[in-house]
Design a binder for these strands. Structure first.
Length: 465
RNA sequence: GGCGCGGUAGCCAAGUGGUAAGGCAGAGGUCUGCAAAACCUUUAUUCGUCGGUUCGACUCCGAUCCGCGCCUCCA
């Protein structure tokens, strides 16, 4: 079966293709008012694995991610911290880029802040006005949803119960209809503002994504991703904006990542269970363990984050790394076992088919582990031959091109390889002289430096923790 | 109230109208100076509950219980 994804728009799994092999993809990025938490990272690991899989399937990517660096929360928090908006957002933008790099999330082709696109947003609002979709109230520009009949088609909400024209006054702004939303907010005392042709003010939250997506990707996108909570109203509003301007279908595939819970509870400040990558690392877990855990549960399924699960992820990665090390350092008998070559092909096929099936990473992992178990067994029994190494490593590489967890995160200030080798040589001679105390001493010393030794039939093997 | 999702072993979780993937943890074993790694065996007669359809359902239908998300800012 071909590559297919669940599309929120149609509520069905649909075959995926593009008209020219380029995937125009947009992902809603972070709002930089704080450090991103593990829940945020799930919705960024997802498009990363999606990108990698699309590339594995021969597509070229043109992927855009915004960084929301102007919004109510930012203004509030920056004021509370006594900082300018720029000073404030700079800190968290930098942290976001560092964290995503540590999690091996690839940089999209375009990752760029909202405030660098004020002219594009203003132009978008002007075009909406020209098309008759807006009105002005107290200096702010609003989208009049009554002019956009398709509203609700993404979130599958029926808005017929809400009477158009009903005055909603529980908002700080005056809207004509509960569904209407602000495109451009009139300047307020103590808030940043841009003096533009549509007034002195700042952009509403929704317009940035439409404006940036259309600037870099054109009027029609192949894929748009985001967290499930963004389906309504954010993505619904993006559709109203983009389609209100172009008159064309904005996005073909809407892919939404489910949320995660923490120890079966919703993340919340009061529960104190909002973890950042820094929190995770302080507890001794590696970024790649978090990446593995976040990626191991299919993206449309709620993921229950637990520290047991994170531990399990560490162990699982360790096993795969040991397997890779074994492939690279062991001496296998000459020749090629044809049955095992076929087994490798079967594994690749199973992995690919699982990924094609709406990115079923859990099943893809099962294909990996079944293959690892089978080949480990074959190595023990001597059936695995030197000629089978390449096929095994190729499969492992395919897995890692998506999951990207095999390479250890190297810590600064570690022993050099040469220093490690010297100590190992010393230990080997101590062992020959039956000076096990000295040998164990060296092993312990290296362990403290983050180097793990393993004695095998073919000599000492080592790796970094 | 509207829309939507989920309940599978100790934990995390795949899956299919034909008799339960995988990972982690646990137990026993092989190997080993010790350790590590690896491998083998073992761990759900059962898939929230109750009915129905069927030769046969965890998988389809109905009901029901429980948990969760969105409908306002939220990944």
């Amino acid at each position: 079966m071909a590559l297919r994804f669940y599309n929120t728009l149609t509520q069905q799994v649909e075959p995926f293709s593009t008209r020219d092999n380029v995937v125009r993809m947009y992902s809603c990025g972070p709002t930089v008012y704080n450090f991103a938490h593990i829940g945020n990272f799930r919705s960024f690991v997802f498009p990363d694995m999606l990108r990698r899989w699309l590339r594995a399937r021969g597509f070229t990517l043109n992927h855009v991610m915004n960084i929301t660096d102007i919004d109510d929360k930012i203004i509030r928090n920056a004021n509370a911290a006594g900082k300018s908006i720029n000073e404030f957002t700079e800190v968290y933008t930098k942290a976001f880029l560092e964290d995503t790099a540590a999690l091996r999330i690839e940089r999209p082709e375009h990752i760029t802040p909202a405030t660098a696109h004020i002219p594009e947003m203003v132009e978008a609002v002007e075009q909406l006005t020209k098309a008759g979709h807006t009105y002005v109230s107290d200096g702010s520009v609003y989208y009049r949803i009554a002019t956009f009949p398709g509203y609700g088609k993404l979130s599958h909400n029926d808005f017929s119960g809400i009477r158009a024209g009903a005055r909603v006054d529980n908002d700080e702004y005056d809207k004509d209809d509960a569904r209407d939303f602000v495109l451009w907010k009139a300047a307020k005392e103590g808030e940043p503002a841009w003096d533009t042709s549509i007034g002195n003010g700042r952009p509403g939250w929704h317009i940035e994504c439409s404006a940036m997506a259309m600037k870099y990707l054109g009027e029609q996108l192949d894929i748009h991703t985001g967290g499930v909570d963004l389906t309504f109203p954010h993505h619904e509003n993006e559709i109203a904006q983009a389609e209100g301007i172009s008159g064309k279908q904005f996005v073909r595939f809407w892919l939404h990542a489910e949320h995660l819970s923490v120890e079966s509870q919703k993340m919340s400040k009061s529960l104190g269970n909002i973890y950042t990558l820094r929190d995770i690392q302080e507890k001794g877990y590696t970024p790649e363990a978090l990446r593995y855990l976040l990626g191991s549960v299919p993206y449309r399924k709620k993921l229950n984050f637990t520290f047991d699960g994170l531990k399990a992820a560490m162990t699982s990665i360790e096993r795969l790394r040991n397997y890779e090390l074994r492939l690279k350092t062991s001496h296998f008998p000459e020749g090629t076992n044809d049955a095992l070559e076929t087994r490798a092909q079967t594994a690749v096929k199973a992995f690919d088919e699982a990924m094609d099936d709406d990115l079923n990473t859990a099943e893809a992992l099962a294909a990996v582990y079944e293959y690892v178990r089978d080949t480990n067994s074959a190595m023990d029994s001597g059936e695995f031959k030197a000629g089978n190494v390449a096929g095994a490593l190729a499969f492992l590489a395919r897995f890692d091109s998506i999951f990207d967890v095999l390479k250890p995160t190297v810590k600064a200030g570690s022993l050099s390889d040469a220093e490690v080798e010297t100590l190992i040589a010393e230990r080997t001679s101590a062992k020959k002289n039956k000076d096990f105390a000295r040998a164990d001493g060296i092993r312990k010393e290296l362990l403290e430096q983050g180097v793990i030794l393993e004695d095998t039939k073919e000599g000492v093997r080592w790796k970094r923790a």
